[in-house]
């Protein structure tokens, strides 16, 4: 068999095994439940509040927008953080010592992270469907939109996560940046409140990043059409959503291999040993 095909298949099985491990490890499950639970609490909190000028629950709208936030949270932050951690602990060095190991490693990461995103989205939607009214989950068109936004969202976020992950020197130094990234972006991306109620310059900044478009895509899929009046230009802007997310995907997919290769080249037994000592010393 062709070595590249073999590495791809090994990567798929690697991703599947890691996803399964996640789902059978208590701390990982707790983390997943916590993230989903936290979202639901916020959403239930705002259930009684109405969207500005509408007879529609802000909670329902937030629930849907948060699915877009999820993509960035898992696609960028989880992916990036895993790269930082696994560079630190030598997983990447092992992959580098294996023929086509880096390819298998990355495919594995993509599969396991994508699996986590999908799981979070499905569980959130499932619980949400019981708790909230107004979701248009009965229409086949909704699911179609949901699927393409999800796929494009993964393409836009996972490579970006890999690039960011290879830039940070250690997990410690990365932590605050991830928080800043998530907090900052969700504030200007119309996740928790319609973006049209933000100052205009923030609206422009928000529209640069995928999180806004992912939230918009999710809302277009799962909320009634009448709510479009709360969006910029009174439109779901599917074409623009596709364009922006595709641009992020292409840039990420071009950049990621270059950055990752550079990162892999720097890895060696002694760099891993140095990092281990640093962590063990707690500095």
């Amino acid at each position: 068999m062709n070595p590249t095909v073999m590495a791809l298949r090994a990567g798929l099985s690697r991703g599947w095994i890691e996803l399964r491990q996640s789902l059978t490890t208590q701390s990982d499950l707790f983390g997943l439940a916590f993230r989903i639970g936290a979202v639901l609490v916020v959403v239930i909190w705002t259930r009684g509040t109405h969207l500005p000028g509408m007879d529609f629950s802000l909670g329902t709208s937030t629930l849907v927008s948060v699915l877009g936030l999820n993509l960035v949270m898992y696609g960028v932050v989880t992916m990036g953080d895993l790269l930082v951690v696994e560079r630190e602990d030598g997983t990447l060095l092992r992959a580098k010592a294996t023929p086509n190991g880096m390819l298998g490693y990355l495919v594995g990461k993509v599969v396991s992270t994508a699996g986590q995103v999908l799981l979070a989205v499905v569980i959130t939607l499932f619980i949400g469907a019981f708790l909230f009214t107004g979701l248009t989950i009965g229409h086949p068109g909704s699911w179609l939109t949901l699927i393409w936004v999800l796929v494009l969202g993964l393409l836009a976020t996972l490579p970006a996560g890999a690039v960011l992950g290879s830039l940070f020197p250690s997990q410690r130094s990365a932590g605050p940046w991830w928080l800043l990234l998530l907090g900052g972006l969700s504030a200007i991306s119309g996740i928790f409140y319609p973006i049209t109620h933000l100052p205009v310059f923030l609206q422009y900044i928000g529209q640069v990043f995928p999180m806004y478009w992912l939230g918009l895509g999710m809302r277009s899929a799962l909320l009634p059409n009448s709510l479009v009046v709360l969006e910029i230009g009174h439109s779901w802007r599917h074409l623009a959503t596709f364009g922006v997310l595709a641009t992020w995907s292409v840039v990420g997919l071009v950049l990621a291999p270059v950055v990752l290769r550079r990162m892999a080249r720097r890895e060696s037994g002694s760099t891993v040993a140095t990092r281990r000592e640093k962590v063990l010393r707690g500095t």
Partner: peptide
């Protein structure tokens, strides 16, 4: 070629 790396905490769940 084969390299025996000093493992630390990689692949802990495997």
């Amino acid at each position: 070629t084969g390299v025996v790396l000093q493992s630390w905490r990689d692949h802990a769940k495997w």
